[in-house]
């Protein structure tokens, strides 16, 4: 079933692969031409590797050119590492081949599951934070890192519900996952905000207990405010609009308490024109620059 990904004639002569400690954007086909027209505008980009698991076609044509000009990160959505079932070996091999071709500087996945019983549910689904699920996910992350031959990052999820069966807070689950599997963490501040608002908890308290030393990337994105059947607000992790002000404030606060890490703007549907997306990345960068000019961002707790 796996489609082999042949190396392109001549292969890629990439520019350095390491993701710089600067703002990047999630790259969608709509913006290929904008990025290539003036690659100096953005420091790095991120893509979902699942969208490139094909033999050929325009997306490889453009991504190859992009990779020749800037570092690239892979943000996987399909490994279902939080699930009961082991990560799919054939899928891992396809990802490994794709990574060999594009040499991504970072490779991230999610604290979530999405496959069960041979079917893929195409959503990032929540799991109870139990000792048993933690032990299993440590194994899955370890297996993935071995198959890919590299360290991966795991992202905190957007939650709409919680489980009575949970035995520990999410931050403790992530801390132990990172400590015992050796993975890094991707701190998605929009997800923190969405989850905390949906649960009625305090995002600052969440961040105070987040294992900061393991953070290797930050995500920012927009969410959709909606209402549930009881008329109570519920935030949907829609990635379809600018980053919300409270999320910018969380970001400014976290930058002060973290060593420099790459930050990424995710915008995946209702895509804006390129200058609007670029302006979001510049806003993130200016917040980082302001903090570091003041000498902040170094007090790693």
């Amino acid at each position: 079933m796996p489609v082999p990904v042949p190396p392109r004639h001549g292969g890629i002569a990439p520019c350095p692969g390491q993701i710089p400690m600067l703002a990047g954007v999630g790259l969608r086909p709509r913006h290929y031409a904008d990025v290539l027209a003036d690659p100096g505008q953005i420091a790095w980009v991120e893509v979902h590797p699942e969208n490139y698991l094909c033999a050929g076609g325009p997306q490889h044509h453009y991504l190859t050119q992009v990779r020749e000009r800037m570092p690239l990160s892979f943000h996987g959505v399909g490994l279902s590492l939080g699930g009961e079932e082991r990560p799919d070996a054939a899928h891992l091999q396809r990802l490994r081949a794709l990574a060999a071709r594009y040499q991504p500087g970072l490779f991230s996945e999610h604290l979530a599951w999405s496959s069960h019983g041979g079917h893929y549910l195409n959503d990032l689904l929540p799991l109870p934070y139990t000792r048993e699920n933690l032990a299993r996910m440590i194994d899955h992350v370890g297996e993935t890192q071995e198959a890919l031959g590299r360290r991966i990052l795991i992202e905190n999820p957007s939650l709409y519900l919680a489980f009575e069966a949970s035995e520990m807070p999410e931050t403790a689950f992530l801390a132990e996952l990172a400590a015992r599997s050796g993975c890094g963490l991707l701190l998605d501040l929009n997800n923190v905000y969405v989850s905390c608002m949906n649960a009625g908890t305090d995002p600052l308290a969440y961040l105070a207990s987040f294992p900061r030393a393991a953070v290797m990337e930050i995500h920012l994105a927009g969410h959709a405010p909606e209402f549930d059947r009881d008329g109570l607000p519920v935030l949907i992790d829609a990635h379809d609009r600018p980053v919300a002000d409270p999320v910018w404030r969380l970001f400014a606060r976290m930058v002060e308490h973290l060593p420099p890490v790459p930050v990424l703007i995710e915008w995946d549907s209702d895509l804006p024109d390129w200058p609007i997306l670029l302006a979001e990345a510049r806003r993130a960068q200016s917040i980082v620059d302001r903090v570091h000019e003041r000498g902040g961002g170094r007090d790693v707790a």
Partner: peptide, 13 residues
Amino acid sequence: GVIGRAGRPAADR
């Protein structure tokens, strides 16, 4: 066994 805001049941979540 799934809960929504502040312990409310989470059917529509």
